[in-house]
Structures are given as structure tokens and as C-alpha cells.
Design a protein around this nucleic acid. Sequence first.
DNA 1: GCAAGGTC
Length: 853
Amino acid sequence: MKLVVTEKNDAAQKIADLLGVKKPKADKVYSTPVYRFDVDGEEWVTIGLRGHILEPDFTPTMVYKKRGGWQGVTEEGETFPAQLPATLPKPPFKKKKPFTEDGVELKAWKMDALPYLVYAPIKKQPKEKEIIRSLKNLAKKADSIIIATDFDREGELIGSDALSCIQEVNPDAPVSRARYSAFTKEEITHAFDNLVELDVNLASAGASRQDIDLIWGAVLTRYLTLVKFAGYGNVRSSGRVQTPTLALIVAKERERLAFVPEDYWVIRGAFGTDPDAFEAPHATARFKVEAEASAVMAHVEGATTARVSGVEKKKRTVQPPAPFNTTSLMAAASAEGLSPARTMRIAESLYMDGYISYPRVDNTVYPSSLDLAETVRAISGNPAYAPYCKELLAKGELKATRGKKETTDHPPIYPTAKATPDDLAPADYKLYNLIARRFLATLSEAAVVEGTKVSLDVNGEPFVAKGDVLSKPGFRAIYPYGLKKDEQLPALAEGETIAFNGAVCTKKQTEPPARYSQGKLIQEMEKLGLGTKSTRHSIIERLYAVKYIVNDPIEPSQLGMAVCDALDKFAPHITHPEMTAELEEEMDNIAEGRTTKAQVVDTSRNLLSDQLASLLPHSEEVKDALADAVAADAYVGPCPKCGKDLQLRASQKTRGMFIGCAGWPDCDVTYPLPKGKVESVPEPCPTCGMPQVKVTAFRSKPRTICIDPNCSTNKEPDVIVGECPVCKEKGKQANLVAQKNPRTLKRFIHCENYEECGVGYPLPQYGALQATGEVCEHCGAPMVIVTTARGPWKLCPNFDCPGKEQDEEKKGASGAKGAVKKAPAKKAPAKKPAAKKAPAKKPAAKKDSSDKA
DNA sequence: GCAAGGTC
């Protein structure tokens, strides 16, 4: 039996399809899918891994895993491999074990142990145990092995790791390597007819990256975390990619902080008569001196006419965009409000469901093997694209744009099947739509924009009106993303005199450089060689998770700035993208056989050792800087009782946020907070002077609220919404009242006579509430109107109302029409009357649960 | 409780 090992299940299936004469048999070994087929009477089996199946880690004894992982580097009595350089400082031991120079016996603790962690031995550990089990099971029966992982450095490493697992159970089977860069019949057949040897040096280059990342990451992360320990779950991380990325964001913020805004004045004139009225700025776009602007205003004062002194028309062609690769997709989606991480989550699921091609790709040139016309026909089933597709196909041979990057790993991202808004959840369709339209755009003609420049003269003062009109839509007809609205000027002729209706002078200020959006940051990372197409989005997510950055466009937190500054001062190597560039160079050297993994990793260890040695003596300084930063990030304002800082805090028990006084336990002032993301804002409450916070609840707009529940801005008058149906039945009269609980800030309806009848209904927590006087036709509860940013919404607050079920059914019925895929209709979750607002048109939202808030 | 890189 021939065993073929690929990097992922997908590849295993495709290779089996392409090599097997007959359709391969899908089978499973334990829980791993495999594909069996015959070639010239011999049995072949393909198995897909899940990326790396091994990962390096410090050997378990050296990093005492259970309790003291970060307490020390060795267990009692253990000997340390004697490769420590002489320059390494001897730790001040807190426990009695002696230190001996050769075959060193150590007992160092926490921070003191870090210099030894730099040199701690590393071993590959199993990561995908299930897959390894299946792989070994197959390997035992194999006569020969073909490694067919991706054709790149990590692929070679993944293949080499797989091979080491295989050789544990079958050391003698001959091994070869298939190298392919596309899943086409020719390419795959050629690769398997021309097998080569596994490139051990290339794999070793990848392995050195793994080790170096682990060592630097673990040592610096432990340093930052331990230097100011803030409880479990508060890791302050650092790494070869994430720290330089953070440094980019911090540098941008510094630029903004150093920016001195300058005043300038703009003058806009009003011209023409309705419906041909338009505005135009003075030819001097910005006046830096106010007196000059005033002089112009004086010149035009009282004028009623303007002379058209010139009309200039220019045509501009705008070329259609290049095909999408991962980076350009993330950038474009980011502009449409989908974060890179979310984009990749959605893209992965669209890919898995067969709607788009493989989403992790650098390539921006369609391969000749891709049938463009067939793809256009495939997606033309969507009525929104149908007319355009028809037009494209009628033109004859299709010609696609080409991007700058041409690789052969995968084709650029394109749609592989038709989808309509009924088939997908809204966010999924949004991304699909972007990808499908981009694909059509890459096959389209250029757009032509006709620019008109009209010069106007008012009492000798020049004004310039500019208008842009899309005169030939070209690709813009299908790809409107980022398109400016037409600015049509009325038809004017040179020498003509038109009405002048006065001018307005406005004072403005120059703006600091913009912060990075997530999309822009991804592009900048790519430019600097930080991370890969598959990891960049997760690096940014990581920076959010450890609270180094907040918001989008991205701002660094005080903590992020402090971490970046501390490392830049004492361990600058980790804060620069050059570390990656240098590593890349060394990896090339390893791959070419000019040096070895051991040499490169040892050199890197020594460098880290130096950086750590410069960091350790300044631990007090770093500790204070981090502590101050954390306090500044949490600060919301002064405590009204003791004057100390009020801080945002997380409850140990519920993990919810609340505001507490830094003077605790001496001062017991606390304030409750509503659910959602909470940030401090500098301005105090205009009504009562207490601090305010910005609250962003799930899927809502941020609101700034006063932290004092007793502030009049938080007091909602109790609203009588109707009569209690239960009490009424018993012959009593009691009102149902909507109130806000001052302790929990939660709003709900309950009966005045609640103690006896127990009637209570939940309410949406946001939006103005109104009584209607009507009762629900299903359950008799009072109907209410809640007005949010999205408009008014009438609802029955009764959670158990029988009408709810009927609504669900109706939704299902209308959604099922033409729905290809449908998730089982989710029951409205308890305590969430808001679920009722789900758009009735679409089937139950498919992926919403996967979105991290 | 660490990184970054694959992939799910």
C-alpha cells in the first residue's frame, strides 16, 4: 500500500480524485477521513493532516507543568544541560539547592529562572493526537510513503514532522516527496511521476523559526507577566510578530500626540439659481492667514454675479481592480465594516460550504486552468448579477486583470457557486457579494470618469467648481465599493454670467495623521513582512485580547504603550520588524545548507539572553510603568466618598464589569454597569458631575452614560403600561409598571401587586419606552413600543406568549422558499425578547453564534 | 497561564 500524506483533508480528497482511475472510496481510520483508490492494481491511501501535528515545547520536566510552570525552570535534583554561556548571571537562589557549573543543577524561581528558560531544552510534542494515531495506523501497513504537503517551508516542516511519526512505527518504508502547486490533473500527475526527496534543510529552517518564536515569546511574555503580576488570565504577551505590530500602532499614536494642529480658513461660495444651484470653494483651498481670507470676503461682499472664466473637461479612466488575495480581501472587507478576523472566519465557512475558492492565498493572477466564463455562468443564477453576467458573456473571450503578485499555490479568491441573500446569513452574504462582484469586476472594462473644472470670477476673486461624473461605468456597474457619488455640475459656458449668492468663511484646523484601520494595519504588516496571510488577522485579535489595543480605528491602550516602551528601551530587538527580516535571511541560509538550525537558534538564544540581561536590572521601573498604565486604563474618575480613583473592574464571580474604588477595602464605593463593552470617557456628567462611561452593548451603538444610577439622566419615570391580567381575573385592579432596577440597571415590567400574583415581563434594555394601551391578542399582556436607533418597534413583552411561536413558524415558511441551506430555526433564547426583531425575510441567522462580541 | 504557524 502506498500512503500519501497531505497537509489538509481537502488536499487528500482532491489528490485521490485526480490520481484514481475510479472514484476513490471515502473511508475513516479512527475519526480521520482517508481516501482509498487503485493505481495499476496497487492500493493507494491519502490522508490529510491538520497543519502542524507536532509542536515544540519546553520538555515537561524543565518547565514543571502542573503548578509551577512559571515558578522555575527545573525540578529539584534535575541536571541542566551544560550549554549555558559563561556570561549568564547566576541567579540569587531563594531555595537551598546548590548551583554547580558543569552539568548544572539549578533551582531558580520565577523571574530569576528566566535566564535559564532561554537555554531550556525543547522537544517536539504531539499536538494532534487523533491524527497521529490514524497516521501511524496506516503507516504500519504502508510499503512506501509519499509526502504531499503544501509546497512551501511550513509544508516541508509539516511533512517532516509527519514522517518522524511514521518512522516510529515503520522505519524502513521508502519515502519520497511530491511537489505540486495546483490541483489540476496535469500538475498532480506530473508531481507524482517526478517524485523528489524531502528537503530536510528546508524543514529545518521552519523548525528553527518555531523554536525561536517559542523561546522569545515565552521568555518575554513571562517576564512582562511576572514583573507585575495581575492575577491569572492577565497575560502580557510579546512575540516576534505581535510586538512590532503593536509598535506600529504606538508609533502612529505618538505622531498624533506630537501633532500641532494649525488653523486655516476656507471660503465657499454659493452660485446659480435653483435647480442649477451649486457650491464652489475659493481657488485658494486653505488660507493660513485669517486676514487674507477676510480680504477675500470683503472683495466679494455685495457681489451678485459671477462670470464663468473657464470650463475645462478631462476624461480619466479608472482601471478595474486586481483579483482578490487574502490581504486585499481583508482590506476591502474592512472598509465594509467586517474586521479581518471576522472576514477570515466567514471566508473559511464559505469555502467549506463550496461558495468560494480557498481563502488563504497570496496569488493575484488567475491561473489559465480556471474557466472564467464557466464561473461567470455559475454565479449568474443570482438575479443581481444576471444581466451583467449576460453582458460579459456576450462579449466573447474574457480577459481578466492581473495583480502584482503571481504565485502558483492557489488561485486568487473567486466565487465557485451561486448564492443569493436567501442562502446565507447577512454577514456571510455581504462577504460573498463582495467576492462575487470583485470577480466580475476583474473581467470588466475600465470605468471612465469625466471631470469638469469650472473657473468662476467674483469681483476678481477666483472660485473653482469641480464635478465628477461617471461617463462610462465599466466595472463600476457591478463593483460600487468605495465609489464616490457623482457630483454633477450644471452645464456652463465660458463667458456666461451666473448668480452669486454670497460666500461663507469657515475656520478649520489641520488634522493629525489617521490611526490605522484594521485593514490598513494588515496591509502595513504585509509590507513589512510581519506574519503571514493566515496569521495576520489573529495577531491583531491577540493584541485586542491582551488589551494592548482598543477600538477601530486602532488606538493603543496605556498598557500597550507601556509594554512597547519598556521593551523598546531594554529589549529593542523584539519591537522591530527587522527581527523577522533577519530570521528570514537565516532561514534561507539553513535551507541552502550554509548554516544549521542549531547555530541559528543558539545565536538567537544568546541575543535574547543579552536583551533579558538588560531588562532584568530595570524590573522595578518596568513594574511601575505597567502598574501606572493599567491604573490609567481602568480610571473613570474620582471617588465621591474618599477622593481616590474609581476604576473599571471585573467581578471575580460573574466576570461582569463594575466600577469600584481603588481605596477598597477601606472605601466600599461601587457602581453597577450594564452589559456590554465599557470604556472610560474623560468628560464628567453634564448634569451631576459624576464620571461617565461609554457602553457598547452587543450590536448596538455606543452610549455615554453617567455612572451614578441616581443621576437624573439615568432615572426613567415609571411607565404604567397596562392592567395586570392575572389580578383582573381575580377581580382585583392592579397596574403593570415598567421600571428600572437601580441596583442592576435592568428594566422590566412587573405588577404593582407582584408579591401576590408574580406577573413580570422582561424588556429590551435600551430605547425609549411607550405604553400603547393595547393588549396582545395572544396572551393579553400590554403591548409596548420601544424606540431604538433603528426606529420604533411594537412588541408583546410576554416571553411565554403563544404568539411568539406562530411568528417563528411564519419566519420559517417565508425563508424556506428558495433557501438552499437552512440552519434549524433557533428558538428565541430565554430572557431575550430582542430576538423577535430578527428579520423575518431570512432563515435563522446561520453563523451569528460564532461572532465573538 | 507563553509565540507563530499551519488548519477546523
